[in-house]
């Protein structure tokens, strides 16, 4: 059984993936991150389809979702998550380069839990990512039915 990653990062840009992971690494959260390259794969993963069919591990504690991706974009992924009765309580943080108001409005309307603009400055970026990780993994109380509720550092998987 694969190790449950508590942060799901959906990001198509490998540079951003690297920077994000480096930022999280500074706070030792890098290993908690499962990275998927686009929305389609993210949906397959979440709905246990395609190559993720038969996946038995649970859901992540938080999804960091890029907005602009090839194939299926972040907005569509968000919509499907928030439309699904089982997934809709899953915290979704929109992580994006854009400060566009329309994006903000739309994502919040769809039920996004947070919207974070990736700063150009790496320090600021790293700080933002660190805060996200800390907040969603450590501070935030996950919804009761959420299966991925395991403390950091423990590697045991849930029985279900």
């Amino acid at each position: 059984m694969p190790e449950l990653k508590r942060i799901l990062l959906v990001e198509d840009d490998p540079n951003d993936v690297e920077l994000t992971l480096m930022a999280l690494a500074e706070y030792h959260l890098a290993n908690e991150v499962l990275t998927l390259p686009d929305g389609a794969e993210a949906l397959d993963f979440l709905f246990r389809r395609g190559k993720y069919a038969g996946r038995t591990d649970g859901l992540p504690a938080v999804i960091l979702l890029d907005l602009k991706m090839p194939r299926v974009g972040g907005i569509e992924v968000l919509r499907q998550i928030k439309s699904d009765p089982e997934l809709k309580t899953l915290p979704v943080v929109m992580l994006t380069s854009s400060r566009e108001e329309s994006d903000l409005v739309e994502t919040y309307n769809l039920g996004a839990n947070a919207y974070v603009v990736k700063p150009v400055d790496f320090h600021a970026f790293a700080e933002a990512v660190r805060r996200l990780g800390v907040f969603w993994l450590l501070v935030n109380e996950a919804p009761p039915h959420c299966t991925a509720r395991q403390p950091a550092g423990t590697s045991s998987s849930s029985s279900s």
Binding site: N15, L19, S97
Partner: peptide
């Protein structure tokens, strides 16, 4: 511009 110009800068 928001997404695509900022991304390389950020990188």
């Amino acid at each position: 511009v928001s997404h695509d110009l900022r991304a390389p800068l950020r990188h």
